[in-house]
Design a binder for these strands. Sequence first.
DNA 1: TTGACTGTTTACCTACA
DNA 2: TGTAGGTAAACAGTCAA
Length: 439
Amino acid sequence: MTHSMWEGGNFRFIFLSSEDHFSLVFNQKNTGRQRLTTEVQGMPKSEREGDKRASGRENEQRDASPPLLSKSSSPQPVEHLSSGVRCVSELNSLRAADEFERMQFLQLMFQNFQTVPIRPSVLRSPALQLQANEGNPIVMNKRKDIGHSAQTFMQAVSGSSQHRKQSSSFHSHSPVESEIQRSNSLFVNGQCRWPGCDKVFEGYTHFLKHLNQEHSTDEKTIAQWRVQQDLVHNMENQLIQEKQKLHAMQLHLQLLECISTRTGAAPGCWRPLVPNLPQVGEPDGRTERASEAPVQQEPWHILLPHLLPDFVSSVEYYKYANIRPPYTYAFLIRWSILEAPEKQRTLNEIYNWFTRMFFYFRHNSPTWKNAVRHNLSLHKCFVRVDGRTGAVWTVDEEEFQKRKGQKIHRDYTLKWLTPFSHCSSHEASDVSVKATNSQ
DNA sequence: TTGACTGTTTACCTACA
DNA sequence: TGTAGGTAAACAGTCAA
């Protein structure tokens, strides 16, 4: 059994290897708590060969399918715990020298990274959204990058190896070599910065020789590269989350400040802002804004037309923030339908509207899509009409009016909604008038 | 034939009045 | 405690590959 350890930032990596398996331990230094462990274990070669004989079909499969990232190579069971604490991969062989098994190893590595199953409800946990940011284009792009990264890695290693061979022919003091040195993050102050390796070299040429010899494309190097990639990926995800948090905090503070300056009220007296409600088109083509409703005596209503130009509206906010909008599904569906030119939409158009309008609905689709269908079927105010190109959904306003006044918003973490803010402006006015008259 | 999509229904849970 | 809304799941029908 051999082992090596290297540290980076607040994390420590330990690589253990023996004849038939190796493990990578990734933990947090100052807490001592294990944050992520990637263990890769292989069975003894004798067992592997026994398995191959038993299956008898492995060679066929090997010939029939491309080895890299092909589904048919039937990876061994991979266990994932979505908390990111521990990932365990098991595969038949890691010590095998042939290229196929090396590719299988790489394949498992990337599957291990890509296919962490998380139940939709778990996504509501902010901490875990980090891992399941399916709707985030940045994360998705990163994952796409990883998707072909086995090949890319081999090409990169191969390419950089060639590059290094070329570079090594340069004189140690040539301007080109100096430039390469500057751009090579693995060679800093005459020291090899490869994880776990701090060897000092007289010149870049010596370093390159060391790099080619000690950090070639063996399992250990690939595993180290994999851990480094995971580390960068997690940091990038965390950065995205923190940026979103910053955005939300900034918006919140601006809102408080503006309201307090306009009303003279202390920030603690802040009242919820009515969201920028959809512009519901009138039959004659006019539109009426929520902020222009005549009977809105509450200060936050009066402020609205003045406030909106100053801020990103709440709808705009939810368009870019990964926060669930505080509107009911029924309200959103109705909004979607009424916004359509013909006041009708297909289910798929409603889906698209959700994803277009709200960042939150760009992931977690099995849950909310099911909820949309559930609401369409459940509420009588949604009427299915068979059209020429398939069924479309419309809103039965009469039925909807019956529901008006009932409690139809939920209490979320952010209590944005006033009791009638789920209605369009004229509805809010109507209800306000009735409430006033009844007093 | 199969899988994806659509639509309906039921059950259970939580928040609120 | 009843009601509304959210989530999950089962199930059936349709349709395209």
